[in-house]
Nucleic acid binder design. Structure first.
Lengths: 242, 242
DNA sequence: CAATTATTAAAGGTCAGACCTTTATTGACT
DNA sequence: AGTCAATAAAGGTCTGACCTTTAATAATTG
């Protein structure tokens, strides 16, 4: 008797509505960009109060599934969750779990070589063109350390994007963003010999990507990251938290 | 003149309150498990209405930072976001971005060898004991395919947990959970020769982990996953979406 | 006529207060 | 002691008013 009735648990109205809207958005029934009815109309249509409608919309907003704007012409529009949402939740996870800075390094070292491998296998001509263009910008040695670091980020991002694996790309973006926050972008790119070495290894990695040699791309990227870790690790105390 | 006034943007009351509570929880000022004041009290204390308090709590709930229960003795208690939260958001991301099933396989293949390497370096005696215990259960060949699959999941989870990298562990859990949903756990563990092969490679991986040989552990795990991919890939249409 | 400025309307944001539902505790009655 | 009813404490919901933000429109003016 008891077991028959467990699990019925009256769902909260806002959750029920949020579930429906979420499914609609994820399946595409509610097209991205096409505004939802306003809150009062949703309340009338769904038979729940406006307060509950608002809670449902708030759930979806936090999940990255709608964007809400005030004022005339505002409202809630469906939006597919992207890398920014992933970054937010990975940030919360790392802060909440007190994840070590070293764990971020390990994560990046785990995935970026694979991203390089996939880039070698899946890159398009446009990818190669963009990579070549970014690589060319490295030749200018007159730029400051900040600009150089940004170029470096752009280079890695371009490689990563060429992999065509959206999930790994999203994770990579989140992790490297957290890393850059933690290091304050204070990377060792002021030393001329470091710049020369980075330029050379970047060239070799691109070479492998261009030739479609996934193994070489992965191997070289792994070594490149090991060198980076060797540079950065001594500066960060072992128990640094993000 | 214009530029002086941009960015002031009156924050919503619920967001301000949520931000404060979030910081309190993440910094530990609001201890996990110690219940927050009830909604009416929070409203009085913060000077905003109960509706706004509720919205703030709802934000935090979706972020996995509080758990809320109804009824007497209920209320909202702080809670540090864990792997379950990460899994929810990775699930939303994969569905929203229409991530291919193959991308999940690639992600797992990217991180699990590194997890095995870290396990070899960081495993404790307890980890080894648990792994040995799980390995022993594999010797019993009479179990059904479902039980065998569960054992297999347990084995991989135990390896992964031994790595002591909470971020990679969280990502691994999320990805493998999504994979199992997509495949419906219909894995090829009914064939005796597959079972023998899996048992053997598991043994060799554990061997490397026990010896602290990270390279071997990573290499063997990578091969093991390649074999798994080779088994599973033909069954899944290339454009299968999660 | 064109540029600016006021007005209005449409939406979300907030509030107050009542009432409902769920759940744990307490107490009364076997 | 065990069961069942009453109570209390919390979240959940509803209503309806009002405030604030923002875009569109109308009025004004150089």
């Amino acid at each position: 008797m008891r077991s028959l009735l467990t699990g019925v648990q009256a769902q909260k109205a806002s959750n029920v509505l949020a579930d429906r809207l979420r499914e609609g958005i994820l399946t595409g029934a509610l097209a991205e960009g096409a505004p939802l009815p306003n809150e009062r109309a949703l309340a009338d249509m769904s038979g729940v109060s406006r307060a509950s409608v608002r809670e449902a919309l708030r759930l979806l907003e936090v999940e990255g599934l709608v964007r809400t704007r005030s004022g005339r012409g505002g409202g809630s529009v469906p939006h597919l969750p992207g890398a920014d949402m992933l970054e937010r939740s990975i940030r919360l996870f790392t802060r909440g779990q007190r994840v070590r800075f070293g764990a971020l390094l390990e994560t990046r070292s785990a995935i970026e070589p694979q991203l390089a491998r996939l880039a070698a296998l899946n890159r398009t001509e446009e990818d190669l063109a963009r990579l070549a263009q970014i690589q060319a910008r490295f030749e200018d040695d007159s730029v400051g350390v900040s600009a150089w670091t940004h170029m470096n980020v752009d280079w890695h991002l371009a490689v990563v994007v060429a992999s065509r694996n959206e999930l790994l790309i999203g994770i990579w973006k989140a992790v490297s963003s957290l890393m850059h926050e933690a290091t304050g972008l204070e990377e060792p790119y002021n030393l001329p010999e470091v710049r020369v070495a980075v330029r050379r290894v970047h060239r070799r990695i691109l070479d492998a990507i261009q030739k479609g040699d996934g193994e070489a791309a992965a191997r070289r990227m792994a070594r490149h990251l090991d060198a980076y870790v060797a540079h950065i690790k001594p500066q960060a105390p072992p128990d640094l938290e993000v």
